[in-house]
């Protein structure tokens, strides 16, 4: 147990070095991630030309949502962890990891944390520039940010996204190529997760269903929590559902891992 704990900072450090080896790739990724915010600004200002409010949102309120979403995404979304795990299983790179006295899920979680730290560092400056430029055009409602509710939701989002990614990637024990499955789930995350538009713009019955799904707690819930647009009751209920889903996926990942290991054949060194 103690040796496992001692190894974790090393795993984190290796993950960080692995990410920073390709700094330009990271910087490009961070720069491109600001593009959807720019597109959203242009699109929504056209929508608001004829209306003062859309749903419960004003133009500054809606753009604040998209701007905060950019931070949520940079802190909590896995980069290519899914493809890395899939490759480790498919190409037999799991063998040396299995020999170590370190649970695979914890090993991957620390690599995920390192990746998020590296990405957030790379994305920080472009995000600040984006915020600055956007706030010159539209008065963003950053004064309403609620860190007390937002930070636990952000943490829950990272845990949920990691556990979901782990579940999906571990299906590589059975399938040769899981990229189609990964991209299919991406599209669901974008639509039902509040990445394309805030979920409360949906018609009420559809919104009620979307709030029960795990995807809502990946982007919409942490963003709305940070923006301070949720009531206390809604936030508490959301947090319970978010951590509940994360826990459920972690348990599921454990069972998939156990079943997968029985099927896995280690060949070579």
């Amino acid at each position: 147990m103690i040796s496992t704990l001692r190894a974790l900072p090393t795993v984190f450090s290796i993950g960080l070095q692995r990410q920073l080896a390709y700094r330009w790739n990271y910087l490009l990724r961070a720069l491109f991630s600001a593009m959807p915010l720019l597109v959203s600004w242009v699109f929504w200002q056209a929508v608001f030309r004829t209306k003062e409010t859309v749903g419960a949102y004003t133009l500054p309120g809606l753009l604040t949502y998209y701007a905060v979403l950019l931070i949520v995404e940079s802190v909590s979304s896995p980069a290519d962890d899914d493809f890395q795990i899939s490759r480790e299983i498919r190409e037999g790179m799991l063998n040396p990891i299995l020999l170590r006295p370190l649970p695979y899920g914890i090993y991957r979680f620390f690599l995920f944390l390192a990746g998020r730290c590296a990405y957030f560092t790379a994305a920080f400056l472009p995000v600040v520039i984006c915020f600055f430029l956007l706030s010159r055009a539209v008065p963003l409602e950053l004064g309403n940010l609620d860190l007390f509710r937002g930070l636990p939701a952000l943490l829950g989002s990272a845990l949920l996204q990691f556990s979901l990614t782990l579940c999906l990637s571990l299906t590589s024990f059975w399938f040769l190529d899981i990229s189609a499955l990964i991209f299919l789930v991406y599209s669901l995350e974008f639509l039902a997760g509040g990445h394309v538009f805030p979920l409360d713009l949906l018609p009420t019955p559809i919104f009620a269903v979307a709030r029960l799904l795990p995807f809502a707690y990946e982007y919409w819930f942490p963003t709305a929590s940070l923006c301070g647009t949720l009531s206390r009751e809604a936030w508490q209920a959301g947090l319970c559902l978010q951590f509940g889903w994360a826990l459920a996926f972690l348990v599921l990942a454990h069972f998939i891992w156990q079943a997968g290991l029985r099927k896995y054949t280690a060949a070579g060194g």
Partner: peptide, 22 residues
């Protein structure tokens, strides 16, 4: 110029969102 340029695909999809705008 850049050794690992996998993120360019993300760039392509991000930039091409502009094409859907009126």
């Amino acid at each position: 110029w850049i050794v690992q340029a996998e993120s360019v695909l993300l760039g392509y999809y991000s930039i091409f969102q502009v094409a859907r705008l009126p």
